[in-house]
């Protein structure tokens, strides 16, 4: 038989020393402000200046990542955007997936995808070789042949 709490009894709620949901709430706002700067900068250099997306090729990426500022920029953008986006989608799953099993499956897939993308992206930025041996010289940035 289902037991129903006494009327006006205190609502019981699990409390913990650290409030993860509040940290998440603050993170969404702090990272959001940083992401506006990072993503608008990214869009201006990659979609607006110097021919926009038509100017992007391997040489363009290599030229950018030859400068440490763009390595840091892209790394920070990757991590902040992925954590911000993953936390946002987690909230949406919690809101709309009504069965506990569905939530577990969807969130497991979400976290798996997030870890794979963050690890892959980080490795790409740190292990990138702008002048891979054997590649046609006309596809490489000009500093490879210098």
């Amino acid at each position: 038989m289902t037991t129903i709490a006494e009327p006006r009894s205190r609502a019981t709620r699990k409390t913990s020393r650290t409030n993860a949901e509040m940290i998440g709430w603050i993170f969404m706002r702090a990272s959001g402000v940083l992401l506006i700067v990072l993503i608008f900068g990214h869009l201006i250099t990659n979609l607006i200046t110097d021919g926009g997306v038509h100017a992007i090729d391997f040489g363009f990426v290599a030229g950018k990542w030859a400068q440490p500022i763009w390595q840091v920029w892209d790394l920070l953008m990757l991590w902040l955007a992925m954590v911000h986006g993953t936390n946002g989608v987690r909230t949406i799953i919690n809101d709309y997936a009504e069965r506990a099993g569905t939530r577990l499956v969807l969130k497991s897939l979400l976290y798996l995808a997030a870890v794979v993308i963050v690890v892959l992206g980080t490795l790409v930025i740190f292990t990138f070789n702008p002048c891979p041996p054997g590649a046609p010289a006309d596809l490489l940035p000009s500093f490879c042949t210098a």
Partner: peptide, 26 residues
């Protein structure tokens, strides 16, 4: 937010092709 998130997943994967070869990325 959801639309941007899914684009981001694809966009990291396509950019990761710079580690495969210049031809694949281009």
């Amino acid at each position: 937010g959801v639309a941007i998130f899914f684009f981001l997943l694809v966009h990291v994967l396509d950019t990761a092709l710079v580690r495969v070869s210049p031809q694949a990325y281009n």
